[in-house]
Design a protein around this nucleic acid. Structure first.
Lengths: 334, 334
DNA sequence: GTGAAAGCGCTAACAA
DNA sequence: TTGTTAGCGCTTTCAC
């Protein structure tokens, strides 16, 4: 069976294609009877409009690209859902791509996306392709940055104040008496991670504590890499009494690695996560973490995107404040 | 700045559009020098190929739809990633849609997808629109069912043997001495859920135990609905000593609701989840659950999809076996 | 090796 | 109120 177009509908209804076009785009102008006949024909032959043809004619696309580091990560999954929710209201759909924080993948994905001339692209940049997003934007595809600031160009952005996030973690720990605090990351640092470290460092400096020592795991999650990082962590001198982790998944892995070495959390080491994913409250000990409004972030990014007209938009940056959630993985020193 | 097409490239390189087309699609046939000149021009003016135009010409689309119940659910997020991984190898992209298990949303999403004439659609059907998928398939868009069998039409499917899954849960519990076992679902039952119940029922029947009692929560997750369901659960007579839940998220919510009532898991009630999501091993008590190879399921669905030629494909159904993972939420009765 | 031309399904401007 | 027509950017014969 083949796909039927407006031409077939026109034939079946005994009218011209422009009349069919009118019942689709301008129903008020078509005579009642004709309209019914055409609608009948459409139903009859199973007419499906061609988005490709409309796009070719220059109408706005209904596709929006979302480029995240990994859509299977609960954080980005939730984010995409926030985006989708808003797009849905506007009759648009989500093209979901993952880069695994690799510059080459990011390039491929942006290329493919651009070929489909989407309504816009929402992206958490890997940072490996500076200037590229400005180029995309310059070619007419609106770009909204997520968790990143201006890529040189002036693009819209939906961001979280990660400096504040890092600071909140630091001040909490300081308040519990910790002074030797580590910052654990996974993989290469992207901008939001550098900001968190900066916030943490600022809090420590303000309190006259030594700067945070950095530890890097090969990747977030349960692996030899995390184990090695934790091993390094506990052998620092002076030994840190607390570690703030780049996200909840890394934090959980760190906790398990610590426990595997016979160390107690928070007795021997306090641990702070980031994101407040749904599981954070339910692991044991329950995770102290920095929460941010994930779904709202996605929604806002989508709103920013759809608000960009083909021309004459002024670029805006929306900033969310994260918030500390104290649970059971942090405790008073001693 | 505007978008440049092959016409602009041709002008810039001083050749005709068909020569540009040749360097794109048939580079071997173009003279070395010409090719370089054209490629230079493409880079120069920032040429981006139009997918819409190619599609209009009848070339295969590089878009694949994925319709899940909720892409923010870790299960579907992981599934989508499996799909994406395979699509990526084939140069295709994922259109990710959620239905929230609502028939009307499913309809809207399928409509939008079809308009974009995707290479195919992978779907976990809500069950609310019988025959619709067959229609889509009939119109030329390959459909791969996920977690569902033939919709009347003969469609490809990547499935899990949920009857076996239910049976595994039942036999495990029976082996621990349980005889009064409940089955807790959330929202309306879709086919895979009915299959799990059937498997559980069969196991109980084989052992001469009474059939499972059903409890329904308004939705999976932490909510008054789950609380109410748990309240119903513990007031059954005879009171069940074990409950198998529709998925890990529901199981966790049930455990917390049970604990909130002062009941102990597994002391007073054993609980079995389904899916073995990453958090299952890390909540406390750690979840006994039925695992299935989620990412592989997505990969296989994508493979099935891309393998369907425009014609002459024979529809195949691939079935995965789930497996019992015993942890700490189930215990011997007593 | 390269170019001219037709047409995919649709929209929009204009004619009737 | 309805019909005619000219492309949108590309692929694809077929001539040169």
């Amino acid at each position: 069976m083949k796909r039927r177009g407006m031409r077939d509908v026109a034939a079946a209804a005994g009218v011209s294609v422009s009349t069919v076009a009118n019942v689709l785009n301008n129903p008020g102008v078509v005579a009642e009877g004709t309209r019914r006949r055409v609608e009948g024909a459409m139903a009859e032959i199973g007419f499906v409009r061609s988005a490709a043809a409309r796009q070719l004619r220059g109408l706005p696309s209904r596709l929006v690209g979302s480029v995240t580091l990994d859509q299977s990560n609960p954080f980005y999954a939730e984010l995409n859902r926030g985006i989708e929710d808003h797009l849905d209201e506007a009759g648009c759909m989500l093209l979901a791509c993952s880069t695994d924080q690799r510059g080459d993948k990011e390039l491929r994905v942006l290329q493919l996306l651009e070929e489909h001339s989407p309504r816009g692209v929402i992206i958490t940049p890997t940072g490996a392709n500076p200037g590229r997003l400005a180029a995309v934007s310059g070619r007419g595809t609106p770009v909204v940055l997520l968790d990143a600031r201006q890529d040189g160009a002036d693009l819209c952005a939906a961001a979280v104040d990660h400096v504040l996030g890092g600071r909140l973690a630091g001040e909490h720990l300081l308040g519990l008496g910790h002074r030797h605090i580590a910052f654990l990351t996974a993989g290469d640092d992207i901008e939001p991670v550098r900001e968190r470290r900066a916030g943490l460092a600022a809090a420590l400096e303000d309190a006259g504590a030594p700067p945070p020592v950095g530890v890097r795991a090969a990747e977030a999650g349960f692996s030899a890499g995390t184990d090695a990082a934790v091993s390094k962590l506990v052998h620092f001198d002076p030994k840190p009494t607390a570690v703030v982790c780049v996200n909840d998944i890394a934090a959980l892995a760190v906790i398990r690695a610590l426990q595997a070495r016979g160390l107690r959390v928070p007795g021997d080491m306090s641990v702070v996560g980031y994101d407040d994913l749904p599981f954070a409250a339910h692991v044991r000990p329950a995770l102290t973490t920095i929460a941010r409004p994930i779904r709202a972030l996605g929604r806002v990014a989508a709103e920013l995107l759809l608000a960009e007209g083909p021309a004459g938009h002024r670029h805006r940056e929306l900033m969310f404040a994260p918030r500390l959630v104290v649970r059971a993985t942090t405790g008073r020193i001693g």
